[in-house]
């Protein structure tokens, strides 16, 4: 899986540079997130601007990351989620669990 990472204001931003997250690469994403969390980076934003398609295994990988980050008192949020991809979160009601941001900058400058 093609990803890049940078730390901004203490938060790890993971840029997923793939068009699809499906059963071919979702295990890589899951492992990558778990490794980050095990290394103590449990405040994570997954930037999904280039992702046009996510299947059930992709949702599962993000949910796994969310649960593991939460277990370490951290948080996994999502940024730049495309509309059709967002509808998959809505269908499975995962939109109630994840925090969504219009872009990465939004994660650091919140009104609340």
């Amino acid at each position: 899986m093609n990803v890049t990472q940078e730390k901004i204001n203490g938060i790890q931003v993971l840029y997923v540079k793939e068009e699809r997250i499906d059963a071919h690469n979702s295990a890589d994403l899951k492992d990558h997130l778990l490794t980050m969390i095990e290394q103590g980076e449990s405040d994570i934003v997954v930037q999904m601007e280039t992702v046009r398609f996510v299947d059930s295994s992709g949702l599962g990988a993000l949910l796994s990351g969310f649960k593991h980050a939460e277990a370490k008192s951290g948080k996994l949020a999502l940024a730049n989620v495309q509309q059709q991809v967002l509808s998959m979160f809505e269908l499975t009601r995962l939109n109630r669990i994840f925090e969504f941001h219009a872009d990465v900058q939004d994660c650091f400058f919140q009104d609340d």
Partner: peptide
């Protein structure tokens, strides 16, 4: 169908097909 209040990491595939 998946339990929405306690979603697991797998088991959503057939739900998508059915829905």
């Amino acid at each position: 169908d998946p339990e929405f209040n306690q979603l697991k990491e797998n088991g959503m595939g057939l739900f998508f097909i059915r829905t």
